[in-house]
Amino acid sequence: MSVSLHPVLEARNLHVGFGGRGKGVPPVRAVDGVELSVDRGQIVALAGESGSGKTTLARTLLGLQRPNEGQVLHHGRPLDYSSRGLKALRRKVQLVLQDPTGALNPRRTVYEAVAEGLRIHKVPGNERELVAKALSQAGLRPAERFFQRYPHELSGGQRQRVVIAGALVLEPELIIADEPVASLDASVRGEILALLLSLRDELGLSVLVVTHDLGLAWNIADRLAVMYLGRIVEVGRTEQVLAAPKHPYTAALVSVLPEATGRTPVILSGESPDPSRIPAGCRFHPRCPALASGLAQRAGIADRCVGETLPVLPLHGPHAAACLLSGHIGDGIAGAAGGSPTGLLSA
């Protein structure tokens, strides 16, 4: 999967910021130099802690947000931000959000909710048949039995299926799903993830799934990109990134998974690093366990960690991390960082 032949959507050197108008208010650099590509039939997971810029990146890819710098390419062509261009894009690239209850109008039937997209885009054909097809693709079968139901008559998992059917009815190439199972029960979670996987296998759909749940990535994603403070700090095949993380941040995320056994959890102190004050040098250095433990010092890179700006990870290519250590100790980062957890409550 090294060279991408059919990128559906690409981010190139993408920068997205907010605010900074008021005096002394620094602008928020929510997305700060991102290269990312989602290929046809590929499931890409974008992980990272709260506030790392995942949703902002997803919204920018959808054309809902204009980048300050860089561009979004759809089949290799820059997005057309005219209202006609955006309307055409939104037929091909659909968004599915975390909370299915909020996404559905409580006074509208399932049929209406799914048919809405067809009406907006004036899709020709038999509406009933198209709606029925989308519902059964989303696993609501027999579809006709769901037509006249209201959201409150459905379970959380069924509601999320209705939302997904509303996206599928337009036969999109790509679904961008922002935390699609975070508000769902454990038992329903697997059902929805299995649905995304089967849609890829059967319809060749591409999926970009935004999440802080690494287990979700393990369950369905081909590629995993880990975001920290507006930038992708590690990317590669899911197995490689999770089994042998190269970036100390990814290693920490993997180590705190509840089911991680045998590894000392590396609990980073503090939280939600501030995207209006991105540290100089490596943006992770103030929290980096490898730097704090002296590992970076021993590798002779500590000065560069705090002083040298790291390059943006390339769009394609093998498993890579934006860390000066990654060349030095290769796969050993998880073990090396795991031996020296930083204090939890020193924030």
Binding site: E49, V256, P265
Partner: peptide, 8 residues
Amino acid sequence: LDVMVQAQ
């Protein structure tokens, strides 16, 4: 909460 905060 996200994984890191959950762990905290």
